[in-house]
Amino acid sequence: MMRLKEDMLSHLEISEYLIQKIQSGVFQENQKIPSENELCQQFNVNRHVIRQALARLTNLGWITPFQGRGCYVNSIQKPIQYVLSSNTRFTDNMENLGLVYQSRLLTWEKGLPSDVEQKNLLLSENQKIYRLEILRFIEGQPISVTTTVMPEEEVPQLENYLRNFKSLYRILSNYYQLRPVRSRSVFQALLPMLKDSKVLEIPESVPIIQIESIMNHPSGNPVEYSVARIRGDMHKCLVEF
């Protein structure tokens, strides 16, 4: 059994050690980990250091503390491999993987574009856009929230088709004969904003993957600009060329 040095230990070192034990199966799902007293003795540190280590594991989603019962290992969600290419769709990806999925429209609005939206969609400041906020679930777990922006002239009267929303691309295909093609995606690892951590049901300390994308007509003109914020603990992206 690997032993840590008993001098100069920090709560970060102790928490990383415990994470390794969870990942290797020494501490299994729903199993209680050693108590604060046992960890204090094992690492020869005071209770404050152990509590900091356990708080970090809790914030990162590895364990859940129960009053008077100790800390238990959470079920560890395996990352879902999401294929990203010029023609990928959330619905198609989930059906290919045989997973239960759902999309929920949180909000929508029609208005004027921001400077960033103007630039990416090649719009003037007076051209109206639709802006949608879409939350997506896999196997009942929220995995991503996406802000999608489209020019009004591309999807006139879009609000008529948003009732009982299930899939944006189904609406685009069925009512507008649109099948946008991905032309660019930019990835960035970030910590979530408070509103995103709430809808994704994750602590603010768990990173997200932000994917900023442009979708074009087959002819080449931009038709959709989106910013997806995806749970970093549930997502593994495969980029196909």
Rank of each mutant, 00 (worst) to 15 (best):
N74T: 08
N93Q: 12
V100Y: 12
N93F: 06
I76N: 03
L97V: 03
L105W: 11
S86Q: 14
Q81A: 08
N93G: 07
T88N: 09
L84N: 03
S103L: 11
R89T: 10
S85N: 15
T107H: 14
F90C: 02
L112P: 00
C71Y: 15
Q81E: 14
G98H: 06
N93A: 12
V116P: 00
N96G: 01
V73H: 10
D92F: 10
C71I: 03
T107G: 01
N96A: 10
N87H: 10
M94A: 03
E117Y: 05
Y101W: 15
L97D: 02
W108F: 15
E95R: 15
N93Y: 06
E109I: 05
E117A: 08
I80W: 01
R89C: 02
Q118T: 08
L106K: 12
D92R: 13
S85F: 02
N93E: 15
N96C: 02
Y72E: 06
F90G: 01
S85K: 04
E117H: 04
E109D: 07
V116D: 05
K78H: 06
K78F: 02
Y72M: 09
Y101F: 15
Q118V: 06
N93H: 07
S114Y: 01
C71M: 03
N87V: 12
D115S: 04
L97K: 08
V100L: 13
S103E: 15
L97W: 03
C71R: 09
Q77E: 03
V100D: 13
S86A: 15
V116H: 00
N96T: 09
Q81F: 07
E117L: 06
K78S: 13
G98C: 04
V83P: 00
E117F: 06
S75L: 08
S114E: 05
S85Y: 03
Y101L: 04
W108Y: 15
Q81N: 09
P113D: 07
Y101C: 02
D115V: 11
V83T: 14
P79M: 12
N93W: 05
E117T: 06
G70N: 11
V83S: 06
S86W: 07
K119G: 02
K110Q: 14
D115F: 07
Q77R: 08
Q77F: 05
Y101S: 09
S75F: 11
R104K: 15
L112H: 07
V73A: 08
G98K: 05
V83L: 09
M94T: 04
